[in-house]
Design a protein around this nucleic acid. Sequence first.
DNA 1: AGTAAGTTGCATCT
DNA 2: AGATGCAACTTACT
Length: 567
Amino acid sequence: MPSKASSAPRVLYWFRTDLRVTDSPALTRALALKPSTFVPVWCWDPSYIYGHRVGLNRWRFLLESMTGLSDALTELNPQQKLHVVRGRPEQLLPILCRQWGITHVVWEKDSNAYAKERDRKVKEVLAKEGVEVVHEGGRHLYDPDEIIKGNKGKPTMTLHQWQKLAEKLGEDSDWKFHWDKVDFNAEIRTGVDTCFDKLCGPNHDFAVPTMSEMGYAEATTTVRGGTAEAHKCLDNFLADTLHVATFSKPHTAPTSLEPSTTLLSPYMKFGCIGVREIWWGSKKVIEEWKKKGSKGGKETKEPENMFGQLQFRDMYACAEAAGAHFERIRGNGVCRYIDWKLQNQYDEDGNEILPRPKEDEVDEERFLAWKEGRTGFPWIDACMRQLKIQGWIHHLARHSVACFITRGQCYISWERGMEVFDEYLIDWDPASNPGNWMWLSCSAFFSQYFRVYGLESWPLRTDKSGALVRKYCPELKDFPDKYIYAPHKAPVDVQRKASCIIGEQYPFPMLDEHKEKDRCIARIKNAYHLGFHGDSTEVLDGNGNQSLDGFVKKAKVAPASKGKKKA
DNA sequence: AGTAAGTTGCATCT
DNA sequence: AGATGCAACTTACT
């Protein structure tokens, strides 16, 4: 292996999940190499966004975040900027390294399954070039691999479990709780004067692409990306000391027109802000509040406080990193098998997804109505329309629509719902989102399937006036409060007065909420008693797409748990 | 074997 | 706003 490292290192820093210069252990390590040249690079790897169905809002958020990162680099050194290279990392990084005489490539560790395989390939090709690879954790509170190691390689399935493992790691992992403001050496320059006709963009300047350059229409969301926006968002949250100290996620309102939560999730997803900035920022504010006598309310604890939210994010990352196929049912060991409608069907190897059969027309239509916000249930429709327009809905609104499409009423596979979130959400994350879909569908993490969100009762809890419905379903805006979540119950003269006839200007409910709820509960109960998971041989042999009817007889599971006891 | 806990259900009571 | 009953799940711990 040729030794290029004899003189001062020339470092290429590969940004992926960390579009920031604050709270970055990996960046700190890169600079600790005291490089003579430092090139910040973004490789245009479309799969970075873990995307299959990336919507316009997420695209723009990403581009803005890349611009924001570049601006932050320039602020630290006027001759510095982000170099966007249009091509796949495993192909381009070796070329760049050769061209620019790079000795070290540094990146933030990513525990995602796709990313792990990509990074393995990149490491391999860079080793052939004699380039040293340095990677460092920092995306999470604790390195998911370390947590999993402590759990004998198994995924973390409860927050308690994760907390206990984290506690054990605590002592020898204290770096993870440092907050380093990155100090760029002003001497470090990019030193790049090479130009690749195609790879460095139309103006040969490695610029961040624009939406129009990529052929996309404008985004619709009011949420803007970038590390500056991220820090503004955190500062706003931390400025309200009492709110930080008494923050309780389950009690925040999904019906609120202005977000009742922090809206930090998209910034976390793209790494515009570091997890420790939120953790230690909140700790500091709460300590000061306590010193002044804890006025105004009672301090909340994990899991419902902000720290618990960050811990859940880590827990999902550990659950994803430990097993295979976290994003689907088939082959996924943590996922309970339930005989959902519209499941993915696979080819004989079990990898290629086949087209869905025709006979599921009723379910397909229900699914489309849900996706497009025309189910006839104003609360669901408002949430789904907000999701499409804004790329963000409140956590508990996500619960409500996810419950509806899966175990609550429609009995449609969580994979379908997850795909829609993948397309529309700005903050779609490969661990948290599949994890939450499994949670809500009672496929993993959560099992109390008899607790179903009501389509009227749930939004009524926090808003009797239906503000969110009036905003996103404007055809309903003149209905009286009494009928806002169930306009089909309004007498015809009320409908006429509201200039909206149900069945004409707004659809009649597409199903009977309570009838379907009872049916779903019964079906899930049956699936639970059979006890198959995504990696059960019955599921794999059955191609992961069959009704459980055939197994009911075999397993003889008619009675519930009490019947079992007698046997 | 029994008990307690589990972020975020609903309806009905005070 | 908070307690209880509803019907009843899993996991962890004793």
